[in-house]
């Protein structure tokens, strides 16, 4: 019996043999297994290349250092603009980290394997974005209060700063991943990514910096954080499909 006949049979009957199950049924572990494998692989890769992980954080700290030098070291001046400065600098750091999201996998062919897998690409892409956020967005959010102290950010707004950045950077990662996926096949995608992605970042910046500003002035921050949460929900629902479609275009085109 040739292999082709075996496939024909197995379409109608439940696969029992090892060859048939390899050909038609889900690979071992199923979808959960694939997501777990992607998660572990990406985490391991990033933990082995700590420099790449630290770059956005160092960039964030450096940019924040530039502002007192360029504007004024006076605490009152800095405190007034600190929410916006911290948010803009964190946003740029997140933008800087986008290039590493798919570039390495594209260069070594791992991205093609991801596309060939029988599991839904949007979910696998979402897993990759989740790891990216865990390794860049979340550290940025945790580091921001420290830089807030250096910019004389009024006390009482540190928690809001960290929470708004944690929520916001997840949206930045999701939306940014669309831009990164669209440009991953291009030789010089760096500047193009910022052109594609920065206009889409503006709502996040408005509500993120708005939350911190509201906390500084003693206003209610819940509205801003709620809208950030809503934006995150929309991005979580739609962005994975756009990322998957973009990856397919970049690799097949």
């Amino acid at each position: 019996m040739s292999g082709w006949e075996m496939i024909d049979v197995s379409v109608n009957t439940k696969p029992t043999g090892t060859v048939e199950s390899l050909l038609v049924s889900e690979p071992e572990g199923g979808l959960i297994g694939a997501i777990k494998a992607t998660l572990v692989r990406d985490m391991t890769l990033l933990l082995r290349r700590r420099g790449e992980m630290l770059n956005p954080l160092v960039f964030f700290a450096l940019v924040i250092t530039l502002f007192p030098i360029g504007i004024s070291p006076e605490a009152e001046t800095l405190a007034a603009i600190a929410p916006g400065l911290l948010w803009v600098a964190a946003l740029l750091a997140a933008l800087l980290s986008l290039d590493s999201l798919f570039r390495g996998d594209h260069d070594d062919g791992a991205l093609e394997q991801l596309l060939l897998s029988p599991h839904p690409l949007p979910l696998l892409a979402l897993t990759k974005v989740a790891v990216h956020w865990l390794m860049t967005g979340l550290p940025l959010a945790l580091m921001a209060p420290l830089l807030g102290v250096m910019l004389a950010l009024p006390s009482g707004s540190y928690v809001v700063l960290a929470v708004s950045l944690a929520l916001g950077s997840a949206i930045l990662s999701l939306v940014g991943a669309i831009g990164a996926a669209l440009t991953v096949g291009l030789a010089r995608g760096g500047v193009l990514v910022s052109l594609l992605v920065l206009p889409l970042y503006i709502p996040v910046l408005i509500f993120g910096a708005g939350a911190v500003q509201a906390a500084v002035s003693g206003a209610n921050v819940a509205a801003h954080l709620a809208i950030l949460g809503a934006l995150l929900a929309v991005a979580l629902g739609l962005a994975p499909f756009a990322i998957a479609a973009s990856l397919r275009i970049s690799l097949n085109g």
Binding site: I178, L182, T183, G185, L186, G189, L192, L195, L196, P199, A242, A245, S246, I249, S250, N252, G253
Partner: peptide, 22 residues
């Protein structure tokens, strides 16, 4: 951004689809 993305691709079809997604 849409115009630049379309121009950045060497393959016309890939550029067209990328611009559509964007």
């Amino acid at each position: 951004g849409v115009i630049a993305l379309r121009g950045a691709f060497t393959s016309r079809d890939a550029g067209a689809r990328a611009a559509s997604v964007l």
